[in-house]
Design a protein around this nucleic acid. Structure first.
Lengths: 199, 199, 199, 199
DNA sequence: TATGAATGAGCATTCATTCAT
DNA sequence: GATGAATGAATGCTCATTCAT
C-alpha cells in the first residue's frame, strides 16, 4: 500500500477536526457541514471522506474534547488537592459550556453508564476519581455517585446556555449545588433521612 | 379524513395542540409541521390556518403548558403546606420533563426576567410564591432566589432527558439539589459564608 | 322556486364585484381571493358561489369595466366633437391605467378581433366609432384601423405601469403616437409610401 | 441523468440559463424554478447552487439578454447606416418580444433612468447612440428622447404578446409609431406646436 | 486522494377551491 | 344561500450526502 499521501490526509483530518470544534462550539450541532469544510480550507468531499456522516464528525469532536478534558481532569486528580479539585473541575466545566456548546453534549454522553467511546469512559473515570478524592477528603458526601454528579453538571451547563445567564446567576446556582454536595456538618458521616442508597 | 367545522374548529385547534405537544416533546422544536399535522389528522393548511407560523405554534404550546402548570402551581401555593409544596413542585416538574421536552423550553423561558408571554410570567410568579412560602416555613434558605431555582429546575429537567435517566438517578440528583436548597441545620438563620446576597 | 333571498344574493354579488374592482385595480390579477372576500365583507365561500373561479371573477370585473368605459366612450361619440373626442379618449385611458391595473387587461382583450364577452365587443365598437368620426373629421389617417389603435393603447397603458413613468414622459410618449396617427399635412389624402393597406 | 462536473459546471450554468430563458419567455417571471430545473435536465439543488435566488436567476437572464442585445445594437450603431439602423432595431426588438417575454422585462428595466445592472445601462446607451445617429441623419425628430423611445418600444413589445397579434398588425402598429417619430416633412427643422422640449 | 458540483428529500408557507354546517 | 374551516398541491429554498473528475 502506498503511504505517501497519508501525512496529507492526517493533516486534513486535523484541520477538519479543528474547524468542526470551533464551528460546533459556536453554533451547536446544527452547524452546517459546508461551513466546517470551508473553515477547514477543505472540500466538502474531503470532509465526508474522513467522516462518513455529520454525526460521525460530531462524535469525533466529542472524543477529542473528551480526551482533552479527561487529561485536564486527571491532572487535577494528581494535583494533590482533592478538597478543592473536585469543585474546581465542576466550576470550570460550567464556565466552559457557556462558550463551548459541545461540552454539554459530551457531558451528557459521559453520563451514560458505559459509552461506546473509550475517551468518554476515560473522562467518566477521571471524574469518578476526582469525586472519590473529594469524598475521602471529607469535602463531598459519601453517598453521592458519579451518575448524579454528571447529571447535575450536565444540567447546570445546559441551563447556562440560556438567555439570562450571568456570572452572578452562575455563582448562585453553583452555590446551591455545592452545598447539596457537601457533607452536612451536623450529621456528617451518617446518611440523611432522605437518602439511604449508596452509589 | 376526519371532519369538524365551525365551532368545532376549536376541536381541531386542540388536536393540533395535542399533536404538537407530543411531537415537540419527542423531537424538540425542530420537529416538522407536516408530522404534527399528520398526527393531528389534519391537513397542513389547517395547521397554518390556526397558527400562522411554526414559531407561533410552538409559543402556543408553551403558553398552554404555562397555563396548566401555573394553575397546578397556584393550587400548591394555596394548599397550605408551604413546607412540602415547594419540593413537591420541583419533583413533579422534573418528572414531567422526562416525557415532555417542551417543559424544558417553558422553564427556560420562565427563567428570563420578564417574558413576553403573560402566562409565562404567571408561572414565574407562582414559583416565586411557592418559594417564598417555603422560605417563611424555614424549609428553604433565605438567600435563594427564583432565578437560581428556575435555573436548577431547568437544568435538572434537561439532564433528565438524556439516555440513562432512571427514577433512581432522578431521586439521587434531586436529593443533592434539595439539600443544597435547605437551610443548613448548623447555621440556620444566618447566611453561609459563600453567599451573602438575598434574592 | 323561492325568490326571497335573491335580493340579498344580488347585493352580495355587487359587493364582491366592487371589492374585486378595487383590489384588482391596486394589486393586479395576482391579488388574493381572500382579500377580495374580506373587503366585500363576505365569506370566501360566498365569493366562490357567485364566481366559480378566480378567473371568472376577473372576467366579470373586466365586463363591468368594459360596460362602464364603453358607455363613456359612446358618450364621447355622441358628444359631436369627433375631432378631439378620439384623442381625448386615448389620453383618458392611459391616465386611468396608471391606477387601474385592470384597464390594461381589458384593453388587451378588446384588442382581440371578437371577444367572447359582449361588453368587450361593445367597447371595441365604440372605439371604432370614435376612430371613424375622427377620420371623417380629417384628424386621423384613413389607413389606420381599430386593431392598431387598440394595440397602441394597450401598449402605452402597459408601459405606463412601469417604475419611471411620469406625467411628462406620458405627454411625450402620447405626442409621438398622436403624431403618428394624424394625417401627414404634406401628403394628406394619399397613403404614405410605407403603408398601403387599408384597415 | 446527464452529468457534467467541474469546469463543465459552466455547461450546466448555461443549460439553466437557456432553460430559464425559454420558460420565463413562455410563462413570465412567475414560472416555477422546478420547471426550469427540469427543462435544464438538472436537479433543483443545482439550480440554486448556481443562482442563490429565483430573483437572481431572473436578473441573470436579463443581464445575458441585455449583453446580447446591447452587442447587436452597438453593431447597428457601427454599421454606418444611421438612417435605417434605428428603425431596424426597433422592429427587430418587437419581433423578438413576441416569443421572448423576458425582452419586455429587460426593456422596462432599461427604461429606468439608471439601472443597477451595468449591461442594462449599456443597452440604454446603445439605444441612445442609435437614436442620436438617426436624429443627425434627419430621420427622427430632434425633440424625441430615449425615455419615450424605450417607453414606446416596451409598450409595443408588450402589446405584441397578446392573443391576436399578427405580422400584419405589427407592421401597421409600427407604421404609426414610426410616423410619429419621423420629422414632419412640412415643418422639418422646427419643433411641432405640441412639443417644445428637446431630449 | 481531494475536489466541489450535483443531487433530491425535506421544510415552512401560500392560496385557490371544496364542502359540512 | 351564506359561511369559513379544511384541504393539499405547489413554491422557493436548504443541506447532508454522493460521485465523476
Amino acid at each position: 500500500m502506498t503511504r505517501s499521501l497519508r501525512s496529507d490526509a492526517q493533516r486534513n483530518r486535523l484541520r477538519i477536526l479543528e474547524a468542526a470544534e470551533v464551528v460546533f462550539a459556536m453554533k451547536g450541532p446544527s452547524a452546517s457541514t459546508e461551513e466546517i469544510a470551508q473553515r477547514a480550507g477543505v472540500g466538502i468531499g474531503t470532509l465526508f471522506r474522513h467522516f462518513p456522516t455529520k454525526k460521525a464528525l460530531l462524535q469525533a469532536i466529542l472524543k477529542e474534547l473528551a480526551v482533552r478534558i479527561a487529561t485536564e481532569t486527571e491532572e487535577l486528580v494528581r494535583s494533590g488537592e482533592p478538597a478543592s479539585a473536585f469543585y474546581e473541575f465542576f466550576s470550570r466545566m460550567v464556565g466552559q459550556a457557556t462558550k463551548q456548546k459541545t461540552v454539554v453534549g459530551l457531558l451528557a454522553e459521559a453520563g451514560i453508564a458505559v459509552s461506546v467511546a473509550k475517551p468518554v469512559n476515560a473522562l467518566r473515570d477521571a471524574v469518578e476519581a476526582l469525586l472519590a478524592g473529594a469524598q475521602r477528603a471529607g469535602k463531598v458526601r459519601q453517598d453521592v455517585g458519579v451518575a448524579e454528579v454528571l447529571a447535575l453538571l450536565t444540567g447546570v451547563c445546559q441551563a447556562s446556555m440560556h438567555a439570562d445567564w450571568s456570572e452572578e446567576l452562575q455563582d448562585r446556582t453553583l452555590a446551591v449545588v455545592f452545598d447539596g454536595l457537601r457533607p452536612n456538618p451536623a450529621s456528617d458521616g451518617g446518611p440523611s433521612l432522605l437518602r439511604s442508597r449508596s452509589a
